[in-house]
Amino acid sequence: MDKQQILEKLAQAIVDTDPELARATAKEAIASGVSPLEAVEQGLSKGMGTIGDLFGRGEVFLPELLLSANAFNEAMQVLKPELEARKQQIAQTATVVLGTVQGDLHSIGKNIVATLLETSGFRVVDLGVDRSPLDFVQEAGKANADVIALSCLMTTTMPSQKAVIDVLKEMKLRDKYLVVVGGAPTSQKWADEIGADGYGQSAVDAVALVKRLVNKKK
């Protein structure tokens, strides 16, 4: 099998949500001298990209997304030591601190965004649910984050998204971070109203939005 075939097989293993195949192909890649960095970026990430697109179009659902991410991680267990041995690094576009805002315990939407961001090469710090405005600000500082992503699912917790932006302003840190919001009751209008940098209508949109904003800033 040539390099191109191996990379395609890696991508396919991810699309097929097959952890064994992903792991075996990763080994095969190393054995046949494919660079681990290339295996990740041209193989695994490509597969995740395909799954992400299918998910965005509603052709596959959350289980496939999670299982693909699982296959991705399986292959990474093989590739990561190789990357380290060669002192190679995956290009990390940016660090995103994300979580569900205070008063809100919903996690699924946020988890999907986290998974998609991670498999798109972002470093993700997931704060979990029901986190206070100050938590977001402090954790963003600790993680040296580029982006703060705020999720909420209830109309009654939308004000907690605004509260994070208010605290950033109050602490004169607003310009340090890109702040994006999402979740069923939110909208572009809401994002504009509270002074967020962007709004993602779906998880796939959210990833595209973060990519766009990060590139623009650079």
Binding site: Q102, G103, D104, D130, M154, T156
Partner: peptide, 10 residues
């Protein structure tokens, strides 16, 4: 004041 879940206002 906005009614925040878990706060006394709720």
């Amino acid at each position: 004041m906005p009614v925040l879940g878990g706060s006394p206002l709720e």
